[in-house]
């Protein structure tokens, strides 16, 4: 369980990127973080992963506060894996396999155990067959999954994904959703930001809504989407249709199927 206690973040030039964030992230949940560009999603992730130190407030894991000492940070990042938005800069080793093994090797694992962890992560992400290719030979969807595999190989408890579906085609988005659910089944926590609320609706248990640096809401979808949202955010199609039909479909297919049934019944 991660607790954020009145986290404030002020940039050197005085802009307040985060204002008094208070919330708790239970383990094993899937959280979608919504909010327009500049609302503080990335900054929040930088604080979650210890890349930035809050101006005020504290962050703790199971009651133990993050001290920002080197040892503690290392341990923290071992448990919380962050996949950045642009996979190009994240895949820095000459081949995919070497890249996925980078994290475990940095943690001081033996080559053997690093290779085993990497192989498993690559399999989970469906890029096992690409292991000997250089990163630039991969498609956008494959690169994204390779970046996720590099984090998964370290076997963290929490996955933080920054706009994972940006630029992916629908087939790759479906693979991503499946991957998120795989992690969830293994007991991991998944936190992902996105601009596409329909994508989020397919997998998220909880939603965090950020607006101008404040955490406006953090709740289940039934609560979040029943109340008015900040102007720039949409309500998922499936939620609206479900509400009209009195059911709770999550995917497009289910929603349209239910809609069709309801319409013919009447």
């Amino acid at each position: 369980m991660i607790e954020l206690k009145s986290i404030c973040s002020v940039y050197p030039d005085g802009t307040e990127a985060l204002k008094q964030i208070n919330t708790t992230i239970k383990s094993g949940v899937k959280i979608a973080v919504l909010g327009e560009s500049g609302s503080g999603k990335s900054t929040l992730f930088h604080h979650l992963t210890g890349l930035m130190q809050p101006t005020a407030g504290a962050i703790s894991w199971d009651g133990k506060e993050l001290t920002y000492k080197r040892k503690h940070l290392q341990k923290w990042r071992r448990r919380i894996g962050f996949v950045m938005q642009n996979p190009d800069m994240q895949l820095f080793a000459p081949t995919i396999e070497e890249d996925v093994m980078y994290g475990p090797l940095q943690l001081g694992w033996t080559k053997e155990s690093a290779r085993i962890a990497a192989t498993e992560a690559m399999k989970a992400c469906g890029i096992d067959h690409l292991r000997h290719k250089p990163p630039h030979a991969l498609s956008a969807g494959e690169k994204k999954r390779a970046a996720i595999a590099g984090v998964a190989a370290m076997n963290p408890d929490v996955f933080v994904l920054d706009e994972p579906e940006a630029g992916l085609d629908p087939a790759n988005v479906q693979k991503l959703v499946a991957l998120i659910n795989t992690f969830h089944q293994r007991g991991k926590t998944v936190i992902a930001s996105t601009h596409h609320v329909d994508f989020a609706y397919e997998w998220a248990d909880e939603y965090m809504i950020l607006n101008e640096g404040s955490l406006v809401k953090h709740d289940r979808p039934s609560v979040v989407f029943s109340e008015p949202l900040p102007s720039a955010l949409d309500i998922p199609w499936a939620f609206e249709i479900g509400r009209l039909c009195g059911e709770t479909p999550l995917t497009k297919k289910d929603a349209l199927c239910i809609l069709r049934q309801t319409m013919t019944k009447m």
Binding site: F92, G150, M154
Partner: peptide
């Protein structure tokens, strides 16, 4: 970005 990616992976 590269430096950050490396930092994040220990």
């Amino acid at each position: 970005e590269v430096i950050m990616a490396q930092t994040l992976r220990s």
